[in-house]
Amino acid sequence: MTTHLNHSAPKAETNDQQGSGFEELVPSRYAVRVGEIDVLVISDGVLPLPTSTMSTNADPAARAAWFKDMFLGPDAFDWALNVLVVRSGEQVILVDAGLGGQFPGFPRAGQFPKRLAGAGIELEAVTDVIITHMHMDHIGGLLVDEVKNRLRPDVRIHVAATEVAFWESPDFTQTEMPSPVPDVLRSTANEFMAIYGDKVRTFENEYEVAPGVVAKLTGGHTPGHCVVYVNSGGERLTFAGDALFPVAFEHPDWHNGFEHDPEESVRVRVRLMQEAVASGELFVATHLPFPSVGRVKVDGDAFRWVAAFWDF
């Protein structure tokens, strides 16, 4: 992974800088150096979703006001979808894999394979994959031929043991998803395990995948949801997966329709944001607007997202 950064500042790169011959009108990746570890946030695209999914327990008027204030909605919006690539020593670690292109209705997602190539990173170079949880927009990208046929035979896929067990008989009773979604989530998780089961390495509470790269179980969004901490040289970056969404800073108590345990999800995201406030660390999440690199502050009785300055 080619980066030329100072020690603490994020940097965006345009696709033609790597000489790949692949060009897009806007940058689709964002490079950060955490101590001696390289981190690359890659946009897998966006997912169109109803605004009600973002805040199922909110007063409709309050929800409408929030989306209006954000110049979004009123009924639907594009939900960002980000994945991470981390290089620690000789290991190249993919954190989640996006949606893939096999699901109708999401034509603007499934972009990570070509954008990874645009960054000059070969799929064959990936030594490890961390799956924050087994929803289709995190594992679907591993199921497309252009990915599964190019991953190395000895690739290690790290998933919390609780997550693998959950998808053997998933419980959707507390979710409020669009009606076709649960069946697709089930079938996608089953397909993932059928293809990659012999490569999956489960962990209980936390596991150091590479020096300074730790996957840690949080639960909440799914029972086996995990986050990824990158630590090096006294610096830290947290990839929060689906522990929080754009509304979480002002309204951490608003439930997301994809949360399998909404009340626990609230506790998890508040705890993660409190940690980020205390440490001042860089904070990234799957569904924050790309490039999703910033920090968290306390603002009165709520939190505030502080986007990192684009250093180029």
Rank of each mutant, 00 (worst) to 15 (best):
L5N: 15
K11M: 13
E13S: 13
E13H: 11
T14F: 13
S20P: 00
E24T: 14
V32M: 09
G35S: 13
L40Q: 03
V46S: 10
L47S: 10
R63M: 12
M70C: 12
M70G: 08
L72N: 09
D75V: 05
A76H: 12
D78R: 08
V83L: 15
V85S: 07
V92Y: 03
D96W: 04
A97W: 01
G100N: 08
Q102K: 09
G105K: 04
R115Q: 06
L116I: 01
E124M: 03
V126G: 04
V129C: 09
V129S: 04
H133R: 01
M136P: 00
R150T: 08
H158C: 08
A161H: 06
F166C: 09
Q174H: 13
P178I: 02
P180N: 02
S187K: 13
R201W: 02
Y207M: 07
E208V: 05
V209Q: 03
A210C: 09
A210G: 10
V214I: 15
K216N: 05
G219P: 08
H221F: 15
C226G: 09
V227F: 09
G234K: 08
A240E: 07
G241I: 01
A243F: 03
F245L: 06
D253T: 13
N256E: 11
E264P: 00
E264G: 11
R269P: 07
E275N: 13
A276K: 08
A278K: 14
S279I: 04
E281C: 15
F283S: 06
H287P: 03
L288C: 10
P289H: 10
K297N: 10
D299G: 04
R304Y: 01
R304F: 02
